[in-house]
C-alpha cells in the first residue's frame, strides 16, 4: 500500500514540477532577491555581489530619517492615496452602470456598445496617454468644450497645474494658507500639504485611468449579471416584487463576489500606477503626480539607488495588503 502511495506522490510532484519550477524561477526567487536587495546598498551599476549590506537603512530613508527622500516618498503616498480614493469608486460605479445598460434586454445594438465600452481597455496605455495629452492641452478639446458650455473662456493648463482640488475649494471660501493647526509636519510634508487633494494634473491622469479601466471591469460585472438565474427574478416578479426591489434584493447581493473581485483588482492596479505618469507628466508639476511606482523607477534607474527602489516596492506591497484587508473586512461585515 505505502509503496503505491509513494509512487503516486512522486508522480504528483512530477506533474506539478513545470508549474513549481516556473513559479519558483519567475516569482519566488525574484521576490526573495528583491527583498534581499532592499537591505543592501546597491547602485545597480555593479554586480549585486559587490554591494555592501545596508541593514534597514533603505527603509529608514523612506520612513524614519528626515530628508528630502522621505519628503518625496510622502508626496508619492499622498498622491497615490488620492488617486486610489478617486479612481477605484469611480471606475467601479461606472463599470457597474455600463454593465447594467449593456445587459438590458431592451437595448438595441448591445454588441456595438459592449465593444465600444471595452475598447479603451485593449488600447495601448501609452498611446491613450498621448491622446489625452492632446485632449488636455491648453488649446485642446477639453478646454474648447468647457469654454462653449461655461461662461467665459476656459484656458486651464491641465497637465501643468499643481493646485490641489481641496486647496482650490478652500481658496474659494477664503482659506488661502495653512491654519495654525495644520502647520506641523508628518514625514517632511506639512499637514496642509497632506490635505491638498489631488492636483489638477493628477485629476487629469485619474480621468484617463478611469476611462481606460472601466471597460474591463464592466466585462466582469456583465459576466456576473449573466450568472444571475432568470428563474429567481421571475419568481420574485410573481411574488410581486417591484423592479427596484428585485435589483436591491436579488441582483445586487448575487453580485457581491464580482464586486469583491473588481474592488480588489482596482486597489492593486491603482497603487501601481506608472505608465500614465511616465508618459504624461514624469511626476510633475511640483511632484504632484509622483507615485511610488514612478519613484521606484526614478530611484532605481535615474538615481542609481536600486536598494532604496526595492525598499519602496516592499513598503507599497504592505500598503496594498492593508488596503485589501480592510476592504475584505468591510465587505464581509455586510454579509
Amino acid at each position: 500500500m505505502s509503496r503505491i502511495h509513494g509512487r503516486q506522490g512522486l508522480a504528483g510532484w512530477l506533474f506539478m514540477s513545470p508549474a513549481i519550477i516556473g513559479l519558483g524561477v519567475f516569482m519566488v526567487a525574484p521576490i526573495a532577491l528583491a527583498l534581499w536587495v532592499s537591505f543592501r546598498d546597491w547602485s545597480g551599476l555593479t554586480p549585486l555581489g559587490a554591494s555592501e549590506p545596508a541593514g534597514a537603512a533603505n527603509y529608514a530613508d523612506l520612513l524614519t530619517d528626515s530628508s528630502v527622500v522621505r519628503g518625496d516618498f510622502a508626496k508619492s503616498l499622498r498622491n497615490n492615496l488620492y488617486y486610489v480614493l478617486g479612481v477605484v469608486p469611480a471606475q467601479t460605479f461606472l463599470a457597474f452602470l455600463l454593465a447594467l445598460v449593456v445587459n438590458a434586454r431592451l437595448l438595441k445594438g448591445r454588441t456595438f456598445f459592449r465593444t465600444a465600452f471595452y475598447f479603451p481597455s485593449v488600447t495601448s496605455s501609452i498611446a491613450v496617454a498621448f491622446i489625452f495629452i492632446f485632449l488636455f492641452s491648453p488649446t485642446g478639446v477639453v478646454n474648447t468644450v468647457l469654454s462653449a458650455v461655461l461662461p467665459g473662456k476656459v484656458d486651464l493648463v491641465w497637465l501643468d497645474d499643481s493646485d490641489g482640488l481641496l486647496h482650490l475649494l478652500l481658496r474659494a471660501v477664503g482659506v488661502d494658507a495653512a491654519p495654525g493647526a495644520l502647520r506641523g509636519e508628518f514625514m517632511d510634508l506639512s499637514w496642509w500639504d497632506w490635505l491638498s487633494g489631488p492636483s489638477v494634473a493628477l485629476s487629469s491622469v485619474m480621468i484617463l485611468a478611469t476611462w481606460t479601466t472601466t471597460g474591463t471591469f464592466m466585462l466582469m460585472f456583465l459576466a456576473g449579471l449573466q450568472n444571475v438565474p432568470e428563474e429567481l427574478e421571475e419568481a420574485a416578479s410573481i411574488d410581486g416584487a417591484s423592479p427596484r426591489q428585485r435589483f436591491f434584493r436579488i441582483t445586487l447581493p448575487l453580485l457581491k463576489p464580482t464586486l469583491f473581485l473588481v474592488l480588489t483588482l482596482g486597489i492593486i492596479g491603482t497603487w501601481q500606477v506608472f505608465d500614465q505618469v511616465y508618459a504624461m507628466t514624469s511626476g510633475g508639476p511640483q511632484k504632484t503626480t509622483l507615485t511610488p511606482a514612478y519613484l521606484i523607477y526614478r530611484e532605481g534607474f535615474q538615481n542609481s539607488a536600486m536598494g532604496r527602489a526595492a525598499a519602496i516596492a516592499f513598503v507599497v506591497l504592505v500598503i496594498i495588503l492593508v488596503f485589501t484587508g480592510v476592504q475584505r473586512l468591510v465587505l464581509r461585515k455586510e454579509r
Binding site: V25, A29, P30, I31, L33, A34, V37, G44, T46, P47, L48, G49, A50, S125, A209, T212, T213, T216, L265, G266, I268, G269, T270, Q272, V273, F274, D275, A293, I296, Y297, G300, M306, A309, A310, A313
Partner: peptide, 27 residues
Amino acid sequence: MIRPSRLLTILLSTVLLTAACGDDGGG
C-alpha cells in the same frame, strides 16, 4: 492598468540576471 507593475518586473529581472551571471566582481 490591471497588469502587474511592469516596473517591478524590470527590477526583478535585473536582479535575476545578476544572480544568473553576476560571478565576476568587475576586474
